[in-house]
Design a protein around this nucleic acid. Structure first.
Length: 592
DNA sequence: TTCCGACAGTGGGGTCGCAAT
DNA sequence: ATTGCGACCCCACTATCGGAA
């Protein structure tokens, strides 16, 4: 299926799955040559059962080959050819919305490869189904024999996704019931993982792309390259397996089609970030807003989030900025944030609420500011492979200075560190250090971009622990963190106020230790999901900041808390107080 | 009719272990 | 030795549905 154009005014996308007119669970109608959904579930279980990435890749590749082969010999194109044609949306406005490869002839096999690949990457094709963990708590008895095809499952999910308005919950519920009643035990388990997004097979999108390359016998680089320009991987698999390298080459940068954003790796400090790259680097302010990708093609403009959701309607400020640019075509990368009247950043919560709201009033009340930092395409020229310095220079030529992120170029760690301090003083989050020579590595988190943020620490007390799951089964994992409230307890003893939880920063050794320790400290039954403990164990916690909270009684919560170490040298009576926490909240920009 | 609780799905994320290179 | 990936789950927020008030 061709990647869709999401420009406003493009013709509505016809969902390929919708063109399969059979009922959600009418498995009997499936071509006898189709793979069964059961085969996909079995593949997933096999992938989960091995730790070898190469073995996982081979299992995934075999399933993809089977999907491509089985469907093709079936020769039953149904209505898919027509659907693919309809999908070529946009006409002149986007021109290239059709470049998803020559996929119009691959018919049912192509569709099946798309769906199977999507499932094996732990996803479903529907952006939202409206069905989550809670809706799957009571399920019908499993079927005794497998009959479902992958396309049956996709169609059932589409039914759930399409339900809206009064009565939609019942429609979804019925679709869930019918689908799960037609699924075997193995299939039910797999389906649940897919729908709630917790497949836990040790393979997601990256490994799937690896398998696509193996299955189609094309270079991995070609697959990854194509994937840069397609948000979902299903169409990549489809193109590779039915059209080979030539079909993959048709996925390319196109204004109007979102690109997977390049990501940054963390570093503890600026000096380490510079050392990791070597030579002169760009040091940019890191803006604590939401990532935005701006597309312009003549009068058509679009804005996408990091997950490539189209948020054009909600961000008119960015639309206006795009329209004002003195170029006909552009694909730009940046961050959008809500600033106060003094020009300092508001709390991240304010930016998130503003960008998440469809309410026009909110739009007026909390204006957004864009800080651009990259250009992937400008005035007909693709820049993804150009060095960072060149891309930024191109951006500077077209963007107003007020819409550019603050940045310096230096090889001097002291200068970079001074800039870091300056950025923090202006209220922003930190810096991103960039390799000037690196191309835009879409969708990867490599070493070419390195982010540095300041780190707060507090000594807090563990109030409770939760049981771990997955590879942490059998361990006590997620700890509840409390700050001291002097004199608030019975008989003027210290009291404790919870600030949040964390499961991060724990090595296996630490998990083993804390499991024993908190079993010992258990205050009441130790067999529940949450084990309350006597507030005696002090833990040193690192975190990014303090945010306002309606969930916790102190009215504050820690952002991105993680464990540094347990402190046996410090009694609970000397743990940090809630006042110390509030002082941190007052001292940063998000104190509002 | 309006209100409110529960659920789903966004946005922002750090650190560890392990396989493969 | 280094790198990339997936797993582990956190926070706040908005939208939506459906039942309670």
């Amino acid at each position: 299926m061709p990647p869709r154009s999401a420009f406003r005014g493009a013709r509505p996308h016809i969902h390929g799955g919708g063109a399969v007119s059979r009922g959600p669970v009418s498995a009997a109608g499936g071509s006898i040559d189709s793979v069964l959904f059961h085969d996909v579930a079995v593949t997933s279980a096999g992938v989960a059962a091995t730790r070898s990435r190469l073995a996982k890749r081979e299992l995934l590749a075999a399933a993809l080959r089977a999907a491509a082969h089985g469907g093709m010999t079936g020769g039953d194109a149904t209505a898919d050819g027509a659907a693919a044609g309809e999908g070529m949306a946009g006409g002149a406005a986007t021109g290239g919305a059709t470049t998803g490869g020559p996929g119009s002839d691959d018919g049912r096999a192509g569709e099946e490869v798309d769906v199977v690949a999507t499932f094996l990457s732990g996803r479903v094709r529907q952006r939202r189904t409206g069905v989550g963990w809670r809706s799957l708590t009571s399920l019908p008895a499993p079927a005794s024999a497998p009959t479902l095809t992958p396309l049956d499952v996709d169609a059932a999910l589409q039914t759930m996704a399409d339900a809206e308005g009064p009565g939609s919950a019942a429609v979804r519920g019925e679709a869930v019931r019918r689908l799960f009643a037609a699924a075997t035990q193995d299939e039910q388990t797999f389906l649940r993982g897919l729908i709630v997004g917790e497949l836990r097979q040790g393979a997601l999108d990256s490994l799937l792309l690896d398998a696509v390359a193996a299955a189609a016998d094309v270079p991995l680089a070609a697959v990854r390259r194509a994937a840069m320009f397609s948000a979902p991987s299903g169409p990549i698999a489809r193109a590779a397996l039915t059209g080979g390298a030539a079909a993959l080459a048709a996925f390319r940068l196109e204004p109007g089609r979102p690109v997977r954003p390049m990501l940054a790796s963390p570093a503890p400090d600026v000096a380490a970030a510079l050392a990791g790259i070597g030579g002169p680097v760009a040091v940019e302010a890191k803006i604590d807003g939401i990532r935005v990708q701006l597309h312009k093609h003549g009068n058509d403009v679009a804005v996408y989030t990091r997950s490539l959701d189209d948020v054009t309607e909600r961000l008119p400020e960015l639309v206006a900025l795009l329209r004002s640019l003195p170029v006909a075509t552009a694909v730009l990368d940046g961050e959008a944030i809500a600033l106060g009247a003094d020009g300092r950043p508001l709390a991240f919560q304010d930016t998130a609420a503003r960008t998440g709201s469809h309410d026009a009033d909110a739009t007026g009340r909390v204006p957004l500011t864009a800080f651009l930092f990259d250009a992937l395409h400008l005035a007909g020229r693709d820049l993804v492979d150009a060095p960072e310095s060149e891309r930024f220079a191109a951006l500077e030529r077209v963007a107003p200075p007020s819409a550019l992120v603050r940045r310096i170029v230096t090889a001097d760690p002291d200068e970079a560190t001074a800039f870091f301090a300056e950025v923090l003083a202006s209220g922003h989050e930190g810096v991103v250090v960039k390799d000037l020579a690196a191309p835009y590595d879409a969708g990867r988190r490599g070493g070419a971009w390195v982010k540095v943020k300041p780190r707060h620490t507090l000594d807090l007390v563990v109030l409770a622990v939760e049981r771990g799951s997955g590879r942490r089964s059998g361990w006590l994992s997620n700890i509840h963190l409390g700050a001291r409230v002097p004199g608030a307890g019975p008989d003027s003893a210290d009291g404790w106020v919870m600030l949040g939880k964390t499961f991060k920063g724990m090595s296996d050794e630490m998990l083993a230790w804390q499991t024993a320790r908190f079993t010992e400290l258990a205050d009441g039954p130790a067999d529940g999901w949450v084990v309350r403990v006597r507030p005696e164990q002090v833990v040193e916690i690192a975190f990014d900041g303090v945010q306002r909270s309606t969930r916790y009684p102190g009215g504050v919560a820690l952002r991105f808390a993680r464990v540094l170490r347990y402190r046996d040298d410090k009694p609970a009576a000397e743990a940090d107080t809630i006042d110390a926490v509030r002082a941190i909240a007052g001292g940063n920009a998000s104190g509002g």
